[in-house]
Amino acid sequence: MVLLSLALAGCGGDHSILDPAGPAARGVAWLWWGMLTAFTLVFLMVVGLWLAAFRRRGHPVRSAAQERRLGLGWILGGGILLPGVSILLLLAVGVPAGQRLLPLPGVEAPRVIEVIGHQWWWEVRYPHAEGEVVTANHLAMPAGEPVDFHVTGADVIHAFWVPRLGGKIDMLPGRVNRIRLEADEPGVFGAQCAEFCGAQHAHMQLHVEAMERDDFAAWLEARRRPPPQAEGHDTAREAFGEHCARCHRVEGLAEGTGGPDLSDIGSRATLGAGVLALEEGAIARWLAEHQTLKPGNRMPAHDHLDAETLEALGAWLETLRP
């Protein structure tokens, strides 16, 4: 009852299971409301009967045989029949519902997007014959068609979960797991690592953006080319080569590995896997304060760099948008 009244208060939010935006999540949301209704009735019945047993006045005199029959009736009815029928129904609903979520072989093989969990950021790869596109902490996908996500973990176990689209799947080092999700309409959805993965598990969010099929194609195409080189920013490029390029990649400039690919960082929604919104000056702030904003993250502190350099780096990185 409390839950129901809360429900009126809203099921919304970027991460809400109850505000589904795809077929898989919708199925589960319906399951939830159905189970909630049925089980609330069961709950009220059981507790009601117990309370009634306490409140009863006037106990009829019964023979031992009558008592035994009555007791047996309670146990058979409530202990066997009630749960028996309930779980049979539930299995009958649940197994087909689960089956629909399976990546069954269909007519057309869906698009594959690879997601790799790192402590504490997301690497997203779009395999393509004409060259792979790699982004970080930002996942674009076409709306209105199923997409197969192939997920794995780079270091520890993470879990890939876009609550408004559907269930989660673990990202295991050494294994590739698959999950099929679909977004009904273009939109932006929150996603968060769902398996505890260490100190910054809380700050491991992924910005998921579903787009029209054509927009998605264009989005990919734009990232297949090196980012445009803005005028000036030479000191920043130099500093980047010196201090950042070992871990970070920028298409056409640096081939670092270990940290997020920064080729399109200027076009992202957030920094630090959801710590800061990407506004003007945000990157410079992140570079200066990232160990305060997200303590323990794997990027070393930049105390040895002066504020000017950091600001120059931030300004240049903001220009990296396809």
């Binding site: 779980i87 049979l88 299995l91 197994v95 087909p96 089956q99 399976l102 990546p103 069954l104």
Partner: peptide
């Protein structure tokens, strides 16, 4: 019987 039921519906290795 109950636990064996899904054998009728589900493909084995997906």
């Amino acid at each position: 019987a109950f636990v064996g039921l899904p054998l009728v519906v589900l493909p084995p290795c997906l």
